[in-house]
Structure formats: C-alpha cells, structure tokens
C-alpha cells in the first residue's frame, strides 16, 4: 500500500516533499548550524509554498527538508490532530510524499506541532518540529533587530530580566502565559514558541531533538537532545506552571495534562478537556479501571 501511495505522490508532478533537493539541503545546513549552537537563531531563506506566511511555513519547511519515505508523520495544532491547520499541512505533506501518518504520538517519527508539546514523553528516535510565529524573545523589550543581535552576542539580557522584575513588582509574579523565555545550554535566551508554561519543563534535557522554524521571520533554531533548557526565574520567585485548580478532563478524567476550557452554551458553564487529543483518546481507550486509578 505504501508503494502505491509513493507512486501517487510521484505522479502528482511534485518533487518528493514538494521542495527541490537543493533547497532541502540548504535548510538542513541551516538546521545543522542551529543544532551546533543551541538556542541561537539561524537565518534562512524560505521558499514559495502553497500555504501563506503565518500559517506554519517555517515548521513545514523543516519537516519537508527532513522527511523520508519511511517516516511516520503526526501533525497537531494546539494539541489536536483534527484542526483545519493540522489537516491542511498533513494533506500537503502526504500528497507530495505518500508517507504514513498517525495520530498516535508514540508511533510518529516526525511530529510537527503548533503551540503545544505532546503530553506523551518523546524518544530519541523522534523529532519534534515547532511552528514559530515570533522567534525573537527580546522583541518584548527591544524593537530593533540590530540591538537584539548585539544583545544575544554579548549575552546582554538585562532588559528582559528587568521586564520580568517589573511584572513581579506590579503583579506579584511573571505574567507571561506562553512564549516564556528560556535559557538554552546556559547561553542563548530563546523563545520556545507559543507553548504554554505547562510544556516548558518538558524541553529540559529531553532525549528528543527539537527544531523550531519561523517562515515569515526567516529563522530556524534548535534544541539538541539532552540540553539544558531553563526558564528565566528569580531565586525568590521560581518558575511555575499553570494551576488548573483541581479541574479534570471531562472526557478522560486526567488531572495531569494541560486542559482547554470549553464554554458550554447549553448549560452556560465552563468545562475542561485535555488539549492533547491523542493523549485523551488513549486514556479513554485505556478503560474505566485506569480512569479510576488516575490521580
């Protein structure tokens, strides 16, 4: 069956994975440089795609440059395999490659994601590709590219630290909800993309290669496996993840995953479900016994 899929892809008239081989190689070169300098933003020149800028073209080009016939692809958007964005990207990739796809995180070799890290712990044989809207963590405090480049080069992150200090003074804690700045390998401060704070600890010393692509902003960066990834925090105000106040997923009962709030128009009340749909499904499939045992 797979051979037939590959044949369909060939007959579609596109090169395997849409991009020409030279472009893919150049993107891989940029990625190698990014891996060699963890957290450092490497410029690259995006290609024309049938997807508009701002819709995941950076992550897409990374995936297209890496994917091979034997890969198994998963694409999620806010944790869900079914959103329009995820579906479209997946369709483009499979149409031009014929590779197998899956919603099961454990079975994927390449996972392209928008704004979430799967709940399931990832392995060394998997690659996690992030779609990044704004790669520059210092943009909050500095509009000029010339200045941010200098600040990264000189490890001058004090203005960002002052921003965090002011948050604490004004609100008692850092109020950044997603894109929480992290320090990678003790050197570069990086924007982990709009993942929630919940997901930030998963990046620390993960066995999985993390690749970040910003097509519109023309940057890629990387977190190699087993790299230190530490959120910026103060000694007396440590980093905290979201607190759901004891709420659980209405569908699977989990109290240990990142929850999305859904507003029920019928009852007028809010309920919570797991953002990671695959994780949720698997827990449901796991049965009542497991549901009872869940913390």
């Amino acid at each position: 069956m797979r051979a037939a899929d590959l044949l369909v892809a060939r007959r579609s008239g596109y090169n395997f994975a849409f991009l020409d081989e030279h472009s893919k190689r150049e993107v891989r070169r940029a990625l190698l440089k990014a891996v060699a300098i963890p957290g450092h933003q490497v410029p690259f020149a995006p290609r024309e795609l049938p997807i508009a800028l701002g819709w995941g073209t950076g992550g897409l080009q990374i995936t297209l440059s890496l994917i091979g016939p034997r890969d198994v692809l998963k694409v999620i958007d806010q944790g869900s395999d079914d959103s329009v964005n995820a579906v479209n990207l997946r369709r483009l990739i499979t149409r031009t490659t014929g590779v197998r796809t899956t919603t099961d995180t454990r079975r994927a070799t390449i996972i392209q994601t928008r704004h979430r890290v799967p709940e399931e712990s990832l392995r060394a044989d998997q690659v996690l590709v992030f779609q990044v809207p704004y790669p520059e963590p210092l943009r909050r405090v500095e509009p000029s590219d010339v200045q941010t480049r200098r600040m990264h080069a000189e490890q001058d992150y004090s203005r960002l630290w002052v921003y965090l200090y002011e948050d604490i003074v004004r609100w008692g804690d850092v109020t950044i909800p997603h894109r929480y700045p992290v320090r990678v390998h003790g050197r570069y401060v990086m924007d982990p993309s709009p993942i929630p704070r919940w997901d930030v600890p998963k990046l620390h010393r993960s066995p999985t290669l993390g690749l970040f692509g910003a097509g519109r902003e023309k940057r890629v960066y990387a977190i190699p496996p087993h790299t230190r990834v530490e959120p910026l925090e103060f000694d007396d105000h440590p980093f905290r993840v979201e607190d759901f106040g004891g709420e659980r997923c209405r569908r699977c009962g989990s109290g240990r995953s990142f929850l999305s709030a859904i507003y029920d128009r019928a009852t007028g009340r809010r309920y919570y479900v797991c953002s990671d749909t695959d994780y949720c499904e698997r827990r449901i499939a796991g049965g009542a016994a497991q549901r009872a045992a869940a913390p």
């Binding site: 001058d156 004090s158 200090y165 604490i168 003074v169 925090e233 007396d236």
Partner: peptide, 8 residues
C-alpha cells in the same frame, strides 16, 4: 541584574 543578581 547586569551583575548577575537574581533575587528580587
């Protein structure tokens, strides 16, 4: 902060 202090 420039001198490395991290205690609010």
């Amino acid at each position: 902060l420039m001198a490395g202090t991290r205690h609010v």
